[in-house]
């Protein structure tokens, strides 16, 4: 299963990952991206490529 790491310091809460993820894994909580239900992640890495602040890293 994929592991999604979000650097809360780099994240500015723009919400691009929320829009990008086809599996609707991300949510904005207190203006920071949070990954919920990671178990559905299909490892497409759209969030990682789309993040303008390089705050997301998908490994798996």
């Amino acid at each position: 299963m994929a592991d999604i790491q979000i650097d809360k310091q780099l994240c500015d809460g723009c919400g691009d990952c929320v829009k990008a993820c086809p599996m609707e894994i991300f949510l904005l909580k207190e203006e920071k991206a949070t990954a919920i239900n990671v178990e559905t992640c299909m490892d497409c890495e759209l969030c990682e490529v789309g993040c303008p602040n390089l705050a997301i890293k998908v490994t798996g």
């Binding site: 490892d43 497409c44 890495e45 759209l46 490529v49």
Partner: peptide, 14 residues
């Protein structure tokens, strides 16, 4: 490629 989604190419590698 940054800011352009070509990551699909890795599907076959994985």
């Amino acid at each position: 490629i940054p800011k352009l989604y070509t990551r699909e190419l890795l599907n076959i590698v994985k």
